[in-house]
Design a protein around this nucleic acid. Structure first.
Lengths: 333, 333
DNA sequence: CAAAGTTGGTAAAACGATTAACCAAAAGGA
DNA sequence: TCCTTTTGGTTAATCGTTTTACCAACTTTG
């Protein structure tokens, strides 16, 4: 049977209040009483019941994190960053993966809210997140991470600078002389994709090249999805000489497809992927990626959540800059 | 301000008990009262406070999952399986990554226990888990997954058949004519490694080959750790013609190292990795892996946890069989 | 020595639900 | 009609803590 504070108190011949004070150091207790209580606590390996504590204190020292997909290494590392910072700060993390299911996302937020987490870090599945306003309006702390949306007024945001990401990747390919650049992405109607497209356009404009959205291809964010997207895109536009791919798994799939078509990377098709996934350097040829720092984004998001919890007025959009890791797939070196 | 049941009751001119009965369907309530209460609930978007509910019911419909590492794709997919099944069953999952820190693992179990999760699925960081007995002795449900240990008597276990895994991989290489087979692993003193070594020995025995543990190399379970381990092992034993590597990241690192040494895969060094990681088929040459089904292991583990929660006497060790996915790196085809 | 602090400790009211026990009124049965 | 059930609803205890308010006993201080 689970031992409670009442039983500790009884055995030590003191009130529960005294036991509580000993545990929390909220009042000075004479040494002999203190020692006796401590000894009994250790004897039973007693740990206060957090549920009761949470109920009384109206806070849980638990944060929720809701992400839209998991196998993706970018998200995994972001979660890892959040985890690490949460731990440092003495928080637990309730992690839920919605698997890009919008309805489940909303359900989850409701659930976490009723579980009394102190706040939520959310990487939403789409731009369609007005429902969040019901929460932010009552000052329930929600931080948007990675993907965001200005519909939600009072939520702070931590994201990568995706316009710059799209711009830098595209510019790099343009500078290598490419003029017909295809883009493959795995999710539509999210800020990350939209902004990278915006950056892509901006780069093209700078080179006075026309923009044509049939050079974009949406696929499933999986290895096979990447292969299918590459196949479809390359058969539609045989003039494409370079590809910018938004996701690690799709990059792997696209490369496999390109090899199947007996095309050479980078000579026939140059390629830039996204995110510094583990096998990048080992694939033939090694893959050039544009990266945003998932770990830093995660840690920052948790810091921002803490700020938001302590100060409901906190509203800020922190954007982290991308960097390019050049290897051979883009034609460098 | 957050609305409570009391306020709903007041506005509907009924007792809190009635509201509770409406919400939980625990008693029949006349239609007009029912409607009125429901309407007020929707008006405020009221959700019962789970902390209070948990406290009263002495259960949380939340399970804990504690894993020892995260970037590893095997673990990620296992977590994914647990997540999915937990969701199906209406449970939340409190996921914690100990990052192979034994002390933190123990702390975490304590923490989760006091958070009143209904049970824990644990992939322990080492064999050193006697501390768990304190929990299982008081019938707190803990399921060991992936790695296990018979020191903990009353915990059910869900693992891969790692003896078979080691045996099958080694046999496959032996059948290809290899006699000097190196093995690289990332964690010591865990059942997975120990059992795979056991399987390795068994296969060697069957071929009447001598066993020598200097053909084993322990490294960090990372890309660079894999590279370093391969370098050290191959320089120690230039006679090695095949490698069996226990972890996806290390496999990637080892391949990169082998290429740096200007050795050919599979001609100079044949290679079998572990786990069907995404880039296996795209790496040059495509990597043969022996795999255990992480998703099934995860789902099964959750089912077993549920069994354990409902029946404290449940103690069973479920072992899932491996399968070999042959590609070119082992010399096949 | 009386008044004023200080100190160590306790009683009891929260926190927000669930649920056993109870009760009046309505319905059913003899 | 009177007695028994059923129905719809309420009261109050309970879960295991924290924390405010209070109190007695002891110390200081003027």
């Amino acid at each position: 049977m689970k031992v409670t504070m009442k039983q500790i108190a009884k055995e030590a011949n003191v009130s529960v209040a005294t036991v509580s004070h000993v545990i929390n150091g909220t009042k000075h207790i004479t040494e002999d009483k203190y020692n006796k209580i401590m000894q009994i606590i250790h004897k039973y390996n007693y740990k206060p019941n957090s549920t009761a504590k949470n109920l009384r204190q109206q806070k849980t020292k638990t944060a929720g994190m809701v992400v839209s997909s998991f196998p993706d290494s970018f998200i995994t590392e972001m979660v890892y960053g959040v985890e690490e910072r949460a731990r440092e700060m003495g928080y637990n993390l309730l992690l839920v993966n919605t698997n890009e299911d919008k309805n489940y996302e909303e359900e989850t937020i409701n659930l976490l809210h009723s579980k009394m987490v102190d706040g939520i870090i959310l990487s939403p599945t789409s731009n369609d997140i007005e429902y969040l306003n019901a929460f932010t309006d009552e000052d329930f702390p929600i931080v948007l991470v990675n993907r965001y949306n200005n519909i939600v007024q009072h939520a702070p945001k931590v994201t990568g600078d995706n316009v710059q990401t799209g711009y830098d990747a595209t510019m790099h390919l343009l500078q290598h002389g490419h003029k017909k650049i295809g883009m493959i992405y795995g999710v539509s109607n999210v800020s990350t994709t939209d902004e990278r497209i915006e950056g892509y356009k901006k780069a093209l404009q700078q080179y006075n090249l026309p923009f044509n959205d049939s050079y974009f291809e949406l696929g499933h964010a999986t290895v096979s999805g990447g292969a299918a997207a590459a196949k479809s895109l390359l058969s539609r536009h045989s003039d494409i000489t370079a590809l910018f791919i938004q996701n690690d798994l799709m990059t792997i799939g696209a490369i496999s497809q390109i090899k199947d078509l007996l095309l050479k990377i980078p000579d026939d098709i140059a390629l830039i992927g996204f995110g510094d996934f583990a096998s990048s350097s080992i694939i033939d040829p090694p893959v050039t990626n544009i990266v945003l720092p998932p770990d830093t984004i995660g840690k920052t998001a948790f810091d921002v959540l803490l700020n938001k919890i302590n100060n409901p007025d906190y509203t800020k959009h922190i954007e982290l800059p991308p960097s390019l890791i050049t290897r051979q797939s883009c034609g460098c070196k």
